[in-house]
Design a binder for these strands. Structure first.
Length: 580
RNA sequence: GCCGAUGUAGCUCAGCUGGUAGAGCAUUUCCAUGGUAAGGAAAAGGCCGCAGGUUCGAAUCCUGUCAUCGGCUCCA
């Protein structure tokens, strides 16, 4: 969302102030760049000493100390040569100056207080307009110069900045809310998955409850696919390197491949993707165009040797479960197939209340060498996708240059309950693998015809989708997806038998029901069900047993009612089958 | 992988400047037999991440290592 223009100026001005503070506190510091960002600002500097989070207070104090001596910013335009002299010894600024000069832009300096910085502008008129309590330094981090990992690592200090103290605090509140929804916290609390130091980083272990979640999500996707003619396939998790040499992935993925050498010296790899395997299933025979499309679905793990620093919770792992599917079809069928996949995506994400946005990712005509295949083929495929988007009335973002090297795609972004957007599903056309594996069908004329392959992941990866979903619903899954759907609590042990009877009625229609021992007070057991985010708690005692009823408590709303057992169970069963 | 921080009981966390560990919740047992968000008591539970080093003595200081977190780079 766009923020008031002057707030961005305030943030940028505060970055200057931060730079000045760093310079004063750490002599020998070489400043680089300090932009405004969403929510605040940062400054990247080459600081000769180690700066840690503990120093933030000191830096912030220095900023507040300097602030009153700053007023407006004065602009000064100087020659590149003068600027270079002025920033002699600061190779970062010199690099920037050279770039500005090369672009033919004016070299400008901005001064406030006693601090002058190379800057293109965009400041507040008066530093006095920035409340001293409207900003807060948040953390120190490392960042590569120019975002290039082959270049020096700089010290980056981040700060939050808003128009007022109240807005700053509101922002911190939002962050706190997000932290409460953190899938790592909820995953532990709800007992969904764990990591073991013995198993290794990025290799999640799924508990019984977490496995229910995975299974139910996968089943849902499978139902949507089965209705559209997909068939399940299964493949081994390792393969000879030859497969990836042929597919072209051996070089592209080489750093990420987990390699295996057999005792006879043959080289294998854990699969980092499934498409080549699926292509080999397709390639098993000659196909008539009448038999196409062939649609193969396969939920399976792939393995990628991600750098340890990139791993985090479930959102970035080394064993990734993809709900992968590939459609092998003629180009003329591709639109209809993409349309069907889109239907699945819409129904799937709609069920959870995600708002979707679509990006049409096309090739960049300026760099044809980055793409494989005929320009005419690309154009046709991109037109197909654009047409489809138009027909569906979707608001599509243009993503020129965002295509994969092997074909254009539609990328879907889902907005979650607290407004964050996540890239989720994709529909990708692939010209590369049909070419490399010589995938064809026999057309009407009896001649072989090159086919197209469509990659169709709905969740993308179950791990990543699970993080998005857990945080979206804050751990309170809809009934159909809850690992435990119902907890039956007898008021006391006297009614344990009746509680079991009620549970059995639920289980007979496929509900997942728990009946904990009545060895704690009722209040405590009700609280436990609430904390565990079980959707419904049933309480039974003397009255219910006599009437054949149950008292049910909706743990999402706190409402409760008493009704005949059969009636409640039938109601819940309906909610489950309709996924409402 | 890089920069910074953190690692103490199953979980969440105390443990000041070095003198070999503590709470709450969870667990187990006993009492209480409960009516819609925590009844009471007791017990058990720790290679203070791991390996070295400094020291009479290390959870505490130093080095290395592993893991986690916040970023960077990369990515489903």
């Amino acid at each position: 969302m766009p923020e008031p223009h002057n707030l961005e100026h305030a943030r940028h001005s505060l970055a200057h102030l931060l730079g000045a503070a760093l310079l004063e506190l750490y002599p020998g510091t070489k400043l680089t760049i300090g932009p405004a960002i969403e929510g605040g600002f940062y400054y990247d500097a080459d600081v000769p000493v180690k700066v840690s989070d503990a120093d933030l207070e000191k830096i912030e104090a220095k900023m507040r100390e300097l602030l009153p001596s700053w007023a407006g910013f004065t602009r000064e335009e100087i020659s590149a040569a003068d600027a270079s002299e002025r920033f002699a010894g600061n190779e970062y600024k010199l690099e920037l100056i050279a770039e500005i000069e090369a672009k033919g832009e004016p070299v400008t300096l901005y001064t406030s207080g006693s601090f002058t910085d190379l800057c293109r502008g965009g400041h507040v008129e008066d530093m006095g307009s920035i409340p001293a309590d409207s900003f807060k330094l948040s953390r120190v981090a490392g960042a590569y110069w120019r975002g290039d990992e082959s270049r020096p690592m700089l010290t980056r200090v981040y700060g939050y900045a808003f128009a007022s103290r109240a807005e700053l605090e509101a922002h911190l509140q939002v962050l706190e809310e997000a932290a409460k929804r953190d899938h790592r916290v909820l995953g532990k609390q709800l007992d969904l998955f764990v990591f073991s130091e013995l198993v290794g980083p990025g290799l999640p272990l799924w508990t019984p409850k977490g496995t229910w979640l995975r299974t139910l999500l996968d089943q849902f996707v499978w139902e949507l696919r089965a209705r559209r003619g997909y068939e399940r396939v299964e493949i081994p998790h390792i393969t000879k390197k030859d497969l990836y040499e042929k597919s072209g992935h051996w070089t592209k993925f080489s750093d990420e491949l987990f390699r295996i050498k057999t005792r006879e010296g043959h080289e294998f790899a854990m699969k980092p993707m499934n498409c080549p395997h699926h292509a080999q299933i397709y390639a098993r025979k000659m196909w008539s165009y009448r038999e196409l499309p062939q649609r193969y679905a396969n939920t399976t793990m792939v393995y990628r040797d991600e750098q340890t620093g990139e791993l985090g919770g479930l959102s970035r792992v080394r064993s990734i479960t993809q709900d992968d599917a590939h459609v092998f079809c003629r180009m003329s069928q591709s639109k209809e197939e993409a349309n069907k996949i889109w239907d699945i995506i819409e129904e799937f994400y709609g069920t959870f209340g995600f708002e979707l946005r679509v990006r049409l990712s096309t090739h960049d005509p300026a760099t044809p060498e980055r793409y494989l295949g005929e320009p005419s083929q690309w154009e046709a495929a991109e037109n197909t996708l654009a047409e489809l988007a138009r027909e569906r009335g979707a608001i599509t973002l243009a993503g020129a240059g965002e295509a994969a090297f092997y074909g254009p795609k539609l990328d879907f972004m889902a907005k979650d309950a607290i407004g964050r957007e996540h890239q989720v599903a994709t529909i990708q056309f692939d010209f590369n693998q049909p070419e490399r594996f010589d995938l064809t069908c026999v057309g009407e004329s009896g001649e072989p015809e090159r086919i197209v392959m469509i990659h169709a992941a709905i969740m993308g990866s179950i791990e990543r989708f699970a993080t998005v979903l857990i945080e979206h619903v804050s751990g309170a899954f809809p009934l159909w997806l809850s690992p435990v759907q119902l907890r039956v609590l007898p008021v006391s042990a006297k009614f344990a038998e009746y509680a079991q009877k009620v549970a059995d009625v639920g289980r007979s229609v496929g509900l997942r029901v728990e009946v904990p021992d009545a060895d704690e007070t009722l209040g405590k057991r009700i609280r436990a069900a609430e904390v565990d985010k079980v959707p419904y708690t049933i309480v039974v005692g003397e009255k219910e047993e006599a009437d054949g009823t149950v008292s049910v408590r909706n743990n999402r709303t706190g409402e409760q009612e008493t009704l005949p057992t059969a009636e409640l169970i039938a109601k819940l069963a309906t909610l489950v089958t309709t996924r409402s």
